[in-house]
């Protein structure tokens, strides 16, 4: 245990390297660019139509003709996984964009006003995090009915709270600094102080969380898809694809395994990007 002394953070060396983009950050960027290209132009990369049945090629193992094998209807799994990028990337963005913006704005407002507004908000936060997120989303989706739109609504009802809480904390720090006071002295309206001055300096935590949140929403979307509460078959969505293959897990493992790998890689891309942004802003 004597290496405590030697295990100091490598201060200088780390700082010099700080300006360079780390390998993991670069990996995250590459993964996301590739994912976006696949999401926008799946047909350019998928060799087959993802929804066409081919009864001459049922449950075939991965081969050069079918890279990821085929399912019980003879559909090419590689094409289905590629086409699922469209839906799953869409889930990542659509589910999070509204709560991210609304939550950040509310957090900024509450943080600036403070007082009773802040304690009311605090209670809302307490109560929201008391519900298991997934249980609440499932409960809301069960009320509204299965499907992606209802999943977005369910996520939105809950998710803004997290952005609000992150921004609130940051705004409270920023508004005590001199430049905020200077803005007030100069007679700027609160909206100008919040939007032009405080918010740009307080958005980092929310921005980083947005990356994590998109990864979480891909996991959530595929989980609901797997349970039959999210995207509905025959739509190609990774969770739905995995559910399709679960009855063939012993005989045709490839149906479920490859879509899962796509989820892992995409999720990893978002987390690496989030970590990279944090690192970049810290060393600046």
């Amino acid at each position: 245990m004597s290496d405590i002394a030697t295990s100091q953070p490598d201060g200088d060396a780390g700082r010099k390297k700080g300006r360079r983009i780390s390998i993991s950050f670069a990996t995250g960027i590459v993964i996301l660019i590739v994912s976006l290209i696949l999401a926008f132009f799946p047909s350019a990369f998928a060799p087959y139509d993802p929804n066409v049945f081919d009864y001459n090629a049922i449950l075939q193992a991965p081969s050069s003709a079918h890279l990821f094998g085929t399912d019980n209807f003879g559909r090419d799994m590689f094409s289905r996984v590629i086409h699922a990028y469209t839906l799953d990337m869409q889930i990542a963005v659509f589910a999070t964009i509204v709560p991210a913006i609304v939550g950040t704005l509310i957090g900024a407002f509450v943080g600036y006003v403070g007082g009773i507004t802040e304690s009311v908000f605090g209670r809302i936060v307490d109560a929201t995090i008391t519900f298991p997120f997934l249980v609440l989303v499932i409960a809301i989706v069960s009320v509204l009915g299965p499907g992606l739109i209802n999943m977005y609504i369910a996520v939105g009802i809950i998710d803004w709270v997290f952005y609000g809480r992150l921004t609130l904390g940051e705004i409270k720090v920023q508004k005590r600094l001199d430049y905020a006071a200077a803005g007030q002295v100069m007679g700027y309206r609160p909206s100008r102080i919040i939007f032009r001055h405080l918010l740009p300096n307080s958005m980092t935590p929310a921005l980083v969380y947005w990356m994590t949140d998109m990864a979480l929403c891909i996991l959530l979307g595929s989980s609901l898809g797997y349970l039959g509460l999210g995207a509905q078959p025959p739509a190609a969505e990774w969770g739905v694809l995995i559910a399709d293959g679960k009855n063939f897990m012993t005989s045709a493992w490839w149906i479920s395994v490859f879509p899962g790998i796509a989820i892992v890689i995409t999720g990893l891309g978002f987390s690496l990007l989030g970590d990279g942004i944090t690192e970049l802003l810290r060393t600046k």
Partner: peptide, 21 residues
């Protein structure tokens, strides 16, 4: 980091297949 990006149901299925079936 990889573990964090894996959906629960997928991990479950993989473990089930490998260690169970």
């Amino acid at each position: 980091q990889v573990g964090l990006s894996m959906p629960v149901f997928y991990v479950g299925l993989l473990l089930l297949i490998f260690f169970g079936a």
